[in-house]
Design a protein around this nucleic acid. Structure first.
Lengths: 160, 160
DNA sequence: ATAATCCGGATAATTATTATCCGGTTTAAT
DNA sequence: ATTAAACCGGATAATAATTATCCGGATTAT
């Protein structure tokens, strides 16, 4: 049981897109190159972020990706759901129902309630943090000098 | 990202073992049969529970498994860790470190802190519930009549 | 027109999980 | 003692999930 690496990669991709000036886009291969992900697969991840309305894609030459929402409105949770999907961490297999020989009406799951709560608790933390708040951390004194390099890189590689 | 079904199966197995009178044991194939799991693989899961000191195995003919601890002292979390292992849901791949070209000293992970907190939050819920409290739920009025059947089944299939 | 990009479907490669098998050790019963 | 029935643990196979690739189509700046 491990979170897909795609979630982490996507978060960093969105952080990169957040450094773009208005109207500018970043080519998918440029992003995946910087992140060190497989270009073709990473494009699939970007598509999921597009479907989730977190980023926008512009087709054609000089095309690429950019944020669709303000960074304050993109929660880490949104990215998590976009990539991992809606399905919960725990899918009750109804073992106890069989064990107890329950009729359909009586079906319940002792673990279900607990697991649901655990998952909500996990998600709640992911809902708290946004791309804006993450970006703020990255901008902290400690890294500010590296970040300016990164922003330079973004400006050199962005389109339009 | 989905919890192993082995965790759920193990929880129910422990609930069954909890119905055993003192000194009695349950044969692994009897348990896996009731739960509907593959016998050989399920034995591996039982081994993990043994390694985690949650249950005891007695070898030889008339052997089997029984609880090692009181049900109050077995948390769902313990079973989760026994089966899934210690590794966290999120393993930082250090993408941002590369992106920011950080020196080894400076290495950190913006997501790491958040993910760690999320996971702790999830685990906290699993730590709350014990086998004893789960058993209590199962004993509730609603199911008590089925449970007596189940206990009868346990008595018929237990050894010594 | 052309080239560069996104798009989406099919498919393959890799990895994680689940499942099986087999030879070994322990123990109750004969 | 011998035997049969269980656990033990290592090797291995089958299955499922994740990651990665490929290709033909649609879109757009030049």
């Amino acid at each position: 049981m491990q979170m897909k690496t795609g979630v982490e990669q996507s978060v960093y991709a969105v952080l990169l897109l957040n450094m773009l000036p208005d109207k500018a886009v970043l080519h998918s291969e440029v992003i995946s190159g910087q992140i060190g992900a497989s270009p073709t697969y990473f494009q699939k991840l970007l598509r999921k972020l597009v479907s989730a309305d977190l980023i926008t894609s512009v087709p054609g030459v000089k095309g690429g990706f950019k944020l669709k929402k303000d960074p304050e409105d993109i929660r880490v949770y949104d990215i998590y759901v976009a990539i991992e999907g809606q399905q919960s961490l725990y899918s009750p297999s109804g073992i106890l129902n069989d064990v107890l020989e329950l009729e359909y009406d009586d079906r319940c799951c002792v673990l279900g309630g607990l697991m649901e709560e655990a998952e909500e608790s996990w998600k709640a933390v992911l809902k708290r943090e946004t791309i804006a708040s993450l970006a703020e951390q990255v901008e902290s004194d400690r890294f500010v000098h590296h970040v300016t390099d990164l922003k330079k890189w973004v400006e050199e590689n962005m389109v339009v």
